[in-house]
């Protein structure tokens, strides 16, 4: 079952790439030029996140080495152990609704400390990949048009975040 699901996962990317290329071919578009134009952005995306990644990874390193993170995690540990969730992922569950760059930093930190093939790293990766920063999106979109009363928008977003988190915790053990 796991093997089948993993094969399915691996097939998605080649499938999407094929669709993109065949569609460009049918429409007689300059795929190579379009590719290189888009690829230029890749450098800037990577460079742009350096300051955020440095800030958050230094911060989490400080919290871990000093023992402060352990104190915090000891409170949560019984709950996490009960649901068989690795305690290392507790921080990322918290940051994901507030800051996208912080979440990437915490993800990199978890990978760095638990190993890239650990279950904690994979769960953290799924949690990061499946969400957008609720508060950031709200401030950008509603801020742009001057909406002051958000009504139920934030609450719906946060509740969906929680459901997504529960879904990740249930679904990841099936895959990894």
């Amino acid at each position: 079952m796991i093997k089948f699901l993993n094969t399915l996962s691996i097939l998605i990317l080649p499938l999407i790439i094929s669709i993109i290329l065949i569609h460009a071919l049918i429409n007689k578009k300059p795929a190579y030029e379009d590719f290189t134009t888009g690829a230029k952005e890749g450098f800037f995306v990577a460079v742009k996140i350096i300051p955020y990644l440095v800030a958050i990874m230094v911060l989490t390193a400080a919290l871990r080495s000093s023992g402060a993170l352990e104190i915090l995690q000891n409170f949560l540990k019984p709950v996490f152990d009960f649901f068989k969730i690795p305690i290392e992922t507790s921080l990322i569950m918290f940051t994901r609704s507030f800051s996208g760059s912080a979440t990437l930093g915490v993800l990199a930190d978890i990978i760095n400390n638990c190993g890239v093939d650990s279950y904690a790293a994979k769960l953290a990766a799924v949690i990061t990949g499946s969400s957008e920063t609720t508060f950031y999106v709200a401030s950008v979109y509603f801020g742009a048009v001057g909406i002051k009363k958000f009504r139920h928008a934030l609450l719906s977003g946060i509740l969906a975040d929680i459901i997504g988190l529960i879904a990740a915790i249930i679904i990841c053990p099936i895959f990894f």
């Binding site: 691996i10 998605i12 994979k122 990766a125 799924v126 679904i171 099936i174």
Partner: peptide, 9 residues
């Protein structure tokens, strides 16, 4: 391998 679980979530 994370693509499908992430897509489901």
């Amino acid at each position: 391998v994370i693509i499908l679980p992430t897509l489901i979530v």
